[in-house]
Design a protein around this nucleic acid. Structure first.
Length: 287
DNA sequence: AAGAGGCCCTGATAGC
DNA sequence: TGCTATCAGGGCCTCT
């Protein structure tokens, strides 16, 4: 569910709420996530301070005072909720979704501080919590990931070279975390719309200027989404709190059958399954 | 060795 | 009302 911008929003709010706080207690309510939470997981966290919270791609990285690292991925449906013990309600929510009440089912992990706690909830269990023993191992753990879209490394030389002789379509590559890491299914469609490139375009056929527009719009869309607080769709909608706002300006995602938003374009937004993921595009201005 | 497809899991919604 | 089928923001594994 959460793509890079949403994970960034979670990271920012975690830094505001739990940075420098000491972990007093860890409760595992359900070990079953993408990988099973190890029996001794709590031992690494207990009595440690949270030094900082970082993010790479869609991963959250909690550095603890014992130098161990708690690596978190939210999968499709993972959310983190922050509760201040002194304030009964409403509950402020660290997921980019918001909720004034706590989820009841599918709470997997609770991490308690003196005055507050965070709860990890994940109905589909595609997320995970892992302990990585040091920085070097973290680098190794994340070594399969390509550059982030906003980084300098994601440049024309890299992209043009990467696309040479490749026969997959561009939508597939934007979702391929080894090529570029952080873009997910929603932003892939949004980026390609702005580039005026059809999602099933084979990448070896893209010229340099098209590659350049993919780079520029990837950076632009993701930074814009972060500014808007991410995208809140489906979950917890219509509940007051810190919802993201980017979904309000989706150009193509979930707009099947509606008119293209580009000025003077008479096109209609189409939905097509590409590698089993729904993909939205304009049948007229995307070539 | 790149690329296609299946699978992990629960919940919401659509269609009959 | 109550079935069944399909789809959902991700990523890994296997097969060809």
């Amino acid at each position: 569910m959460p793509e890079l911008p949403e994970v960034e929003i979670v990271k920012q709010s975690l830094n505001k709420k739990i940075k420098h706080k000491k972990i007093k207690k860890v409760i595992i309510r359900n070990r079953n996530l993408r990988s099973k939470i190890p029996i001794n997981f709590s031992n690494y966290l207990k009595n440690q301070k949270v030094i900082k919270v970082d993010r790479f791609s869609k991963y959250l990285i909690l550095t603890l005072s014992n130098k161990k690292i708690c690596l978190i991925h939210l999968g499709m449906s993972g959310t983190i909720h922050y509760i201040n013990k002194n304030k009964a309600s409403p509950v402020s929510n660290l997921s980019f979704y918001s909720s004034i009440r706590l989820p009841i089912k599918h709470n997997h992990i609770e991490i308690e501080f003196d005055d507050s706690k965070i709860i990890y909830n994940d109905p589909r269990r595609f997320g995970f919590f892992e302990i990585v023993k040091n920085k070097k191992l973290l680098k190794k753990r994340l070594s399969h990931l390509g550059p982030e879209p906003m980084s300098e490394e994601f440049n024309i030389k890299y992209v043009f070279q990467y696309f040479k002789n490749k026969k997959k379509n561009i939508k597939n590559f934007l979702l391929d975390q080894g090529f570029v890491s952080g873009i997910g299914n929603i932003y892939a469609s949004e980026i390609l719309f702005l580039c005026e490139i059809k999602p099933d375009q084979i990448v070896s056929k893209l010229d340099e200027s098209k590659c350049k527009s993919i780079i520029d719009y990837s950076k632009k869309v993701l930074s814009e989404a972060i500014k808007k607080g991410g995208s809140s769709i489906r979950d917890f909608k219509n509940i007051s709190g810190k919802e993201g706002n980017f979904q309000k300006i989706f150009k193509v995602y979930d707009r099947e059958g509606l008119k293209c938003k580009k000025i003077k374009c008479k096109g209609v937004i189409q939905k097509k399954m590409i590698s089993n993921r729904s993909t939205f595009f304009c049948n007229s201005c995307q070539k």
